[in-house]
Design a protein around this nucleic acid. Structure first.
Lengths: 144, 144
DNA sequence: CTAGGTGCTAGACCGAGGTCTAGGTCAACC
DNA sequence: GGTTGACCTAGACCTCGGTCTAGCACCTAG
């Protein structure tokens, strides 16, 4: 079967990235395989590229900087022999994600607490304990 | 008990924000209570401000833009009567966090899969199935 | 032949969120 | 009196990740 040939617009549609972003990603070295050109100079992508980009999109969504994806891409491009390095890079980002999960959970707890307080407040007319600035004295010390 | 008076440096140390960031946050309207000044014009913060900033830090860490925190701060500043609005804002951000959690989990699954593959690959010398470009033909179609 | 669609490059521009600098005030210490 | 340290303002600057524009090349259909 002939390898499927995709042009930039089609890849953009499939990945959800803009054509601008695709060209930017290429300049930034995010592709794990040189992007070839057809006779007239247009970029030609394979379905494998699209798959790879799918991973990139997930990496980006999880906060991996372009520079890091680029490092990974280089390792993959360089081929067999650096698997340990790739592994470490992935593990590192895994730890990063774990940290983010914890932070998000932390904030979610905060929000759920406040939401519950406001719900109580709204339902029971003042029973909740929403954010409340304590009454502000005009100056630093209470009236003498 | 006299309200504790904090200056910007101390607040920076307590919140982990830079003094620059604190001034930026003030300009951006993130404070839920006007920041007062002492006789010589230096900013004076209360422990309540520090608490509030702690929440802001969590909000930021979970991706809430300064503009949104600012909206929330305005609501709190305006006082009682807009609790329903605050509630909706918080709920909205809660949904946003849930979406992020899902994305992070998705990426984490991807990474764990790859990590497992590379581990197998490294341990069993080639058994894994790491990222592998299929052999690239010189041109688009295989040699005719 | 012309128009429309798709692609190309180089480079300008953008918004978010900070960070840093210059130049100044003030209070305290030696 | 001089120096040090914390603070002030206004505004320049930075990174990141894109987005958009100008000006051009191709191909295909009407």
């Amino acid at each position: 079967m002939t390898a499927e040939v995709l042009h930039i617009g089609e890849v953009a549609r499939r990945t959800g990235l803009s054509v601008h972003a695709l060209r930017l990603y290429e300049r930034a070295g995010l592709f794990a395989g040189e992007v070839r050109r057809d006779e007239t100079g247009r970029r030609v992508y394979s379905t494998w590229d699209v798959e790879w980009l799918g991973n990139c999109v997930k990496f980006r969504a999880s906060g991996m900087p372009l520079a890091t994806i680029s490092r990974l891409a280089r390792l993959v491009r360089e081929g067999t022999g650096n698997e340990a390095e790739r592994l470490e890079l992935l593990r590192e980002h895994g730890r990063h994600i774990a940290a983010q999960l914890a932070q998000l959970q932390d904030c979610l707890d905060l929000i759920n607490g406040k939401v519950a307080a406001y719900e109580r407040h709204l339902a029971a007319d003042g029973t909740g304990e929403p954010w409340q600035q304590q009454p502000r004295p005009g100056t630093v010390t209470p009236a003498p």
